[in-house]
Amino acid sequence: MNISPDQTILFDLGVVKINATLAYTWLTIALLAGLARWATRNLSTTGELSPWQNLLEVLVEGVQNQIQDIARQDPGPFLPFIATLFLFIAACTLLAIVPGYEPPTGSLSTTTALALGVFCAVPFYGVRRHGWRGFLHLYLEPTPLMLPLNIIGELARTVALAVRLYGNVMSGAVVGAILLLITPLAFPALMHALELLTGLIQAYIFAVLATVFIAAATAAQDQTANPSPPRA
């Protein structure tokens, strides 16, 4: 039994091995991009909205409001990154109900990639907001003695992000597969429904944590009198 889609190799081109994680990721990307393109082909700027436009506007505005509530900042710069994280993870989790689909978020490589993305996004937005000097100064707060601990904390939260998401998604898939072997059909179905819920919650938690990390790095000085790198 493969517990990670990374182990399912579809094409082996030597160094480049196309596994199921990549394939399902591309499929998910194609689906999301196609849906987005299809839904936004005829956007209305008047009062008459199509159901799809309405749904997408609710989604985008909901993410904007969440970022605004958490970061207390203009959500514009963070919206694409945070919303893409949420949509990708949520899409992977929801598509898990399709038979044969293996969620890419069940791969530690994918969650690590996403966690690394957050890891890189924090200094990216922090430096853009405060400059190199201002951003690096955050690691010397409240005292330069805290520098090693702040760096360890930064790495640890990235690992925690990756492992948390991977563990939840993978465990759901593994537990579902095991239950399918030893229990009647109804119970795995219920577990699958629960898995959908936990998957959406994981997507929300991942996006919120990413927002918190980025917001801590980009918070205004007067709002954070003693700023320190956030911890997971």
Partner: peptide, 18 residues
């Protein structure tokens, strides 16, 4: 097991999706 090629590819995929 962590497949670094997959990690790099997923980062690229994520940026593409973004």
């Amino acid at each position: 097991k962590l497949d670094w090629f997959t990690v790099a590819a997923q980062i690229g995929n994520f940026l593409l999706l973004l």
